[in-house]
Structures are given as C-alpha cells and as structure tokens.
Simulated scan of single mutants.
Amino acid sequence: MLIALNKPYGVLCQFTDADGRRTLADFIRQKDVYAAGRLDQDSEGLLLLTDDGRLAHQLTDPGHKQPKTYLVQVEGEIDKAALEALRRGVLLNDGPTLPTVAQAATEPDWLWPRDPPVRFRKSIPTSWLSISLREGRNRQVRRMTAAVGFPTLRLIRVQVGEHALDGLAPGESRQIR
C-alpha cells in the first residue's frame, strides 16, 4: 500500500508526540503505515507513506536515485550565479552536495496560503525556484539555498520519483495504486 499525503506546515512526520503537537495521526487513519522519508515540521507537501519496507527503502535510499523535487521560496531575487552553484552542488558543513536540477520558477497559481503566512518585508523581495535532488540530507535544500546567499522562506515538496502532489490540498491524502 502506498499513500500520498500533502503534509501541512507545522505537522511532525511521526504519529505520536508527547508534547501534543500535530502529527501524521491527525491526517492518516490507516494503521501500520510509516513515512517513506521525512519532511521537517516547517516544510510542506508530498509525503509518501507505506506498509511495505522494501518499497520505503526504494523510495528513500539514495542508491535508488529517486529524484525529489521541491518548490522553494527564497529571500531575495535569485540570480544566475546562485542557480549555477546549486546545479554544480555546494559545499555544506557535512561535505559537498551532488549536482541538482535548479531553475527559477514563478509562484504557482495552485499554491495554497500557508498558515501562519511567510514573513513579509517590503524592502526585501522574494523569488521562487524549483530544485530536484537525488540525496536527502537533513534540511539539505534549506542549507543549500542559504549557502548560495538566499535563505529559504517556504519549502514545498511536489514530487518523489514518479509520484506527484497532483492537486492534493494540505491535509488531504489518496491511496496510490
């Protein structure tokens, strides 16, 4: 079984929390499924859940090279030099990243408002980009955009391998056949 969930902002990628924060249990009623990969509490978008350990491994193990694609809002107007640096790979404190597919994007018309909203500053513009990568280090996209001088304000995973968000609203899920 494979379930696609549009994980809302502020939700933990686990089913229980001793501190009473929102978890996957608030959205997924199916028993005995587990997240295939993770999204930070402050990230949104596609999260795949399965009851099949082998499938979870295929989806998450970097050796299987499943691309993960993110829509990223950054602080500042992204420039060609930063995009090229992201494409080549950047040096992080835990070593260099693999090359990525990175390109400027526009805010999509299907995008839902975030609750709470992203901070707004009149004097500092924001821009959007699309990043696809084949590794999955802790907070990697955020660290990469910061390393090239453009801190991430909003991060939405839109695709994992062949599985895409495809119109799921925040908190909605669907079973994938």
Rank of each mutant, 00 (worst) to 15 (best):
L47R: 09
D109V: 14
I78M: 13
K7T: 07
V101C: 04
R142K: 15
Q66L: 01
L24M: 10
R174V: 07
E77A: 14
W110K: 02
R142Q: 11
A25M: 04
Q73I: 09
A4R: 11
A85D: 09
Q159N: 06
A146K: 15
D52G: 01
L133P: 02
L91I: 12
R54P: 00
R114M: 12
T126H: 13
L59W: 06
G10D: 06
L92N: 08
T50V: 04
A25D: 12
R121G: 00
R54H: 12
L46I: 07
T60D: 08
A169E: 12
S123P: 00
D17V: 04
L155E: 07
P125E: 01
T69N: 04
T100M: 08
A102D: 08
Q58C: 05
Q103A: 15
K122H: 12
T50P: 04
D94L: 11
W112F: 15
T23K: 04
L71M: 10
R21V: 03
D40R: 02
R88W: 01
Q41Y: 05
L24A: 10
Q175M: 14
R177L: 13
Q73C: 15
I3K: 12
S130H: 09
A164H: 10
A104R: 15
I78A: 08
L47K: 03
R143H: 10
Q30M: 01
L129V: 03
R38G: 00
D42Y: 03
A85V: 10
L24H: 12
L46G: 02
G161R: 01
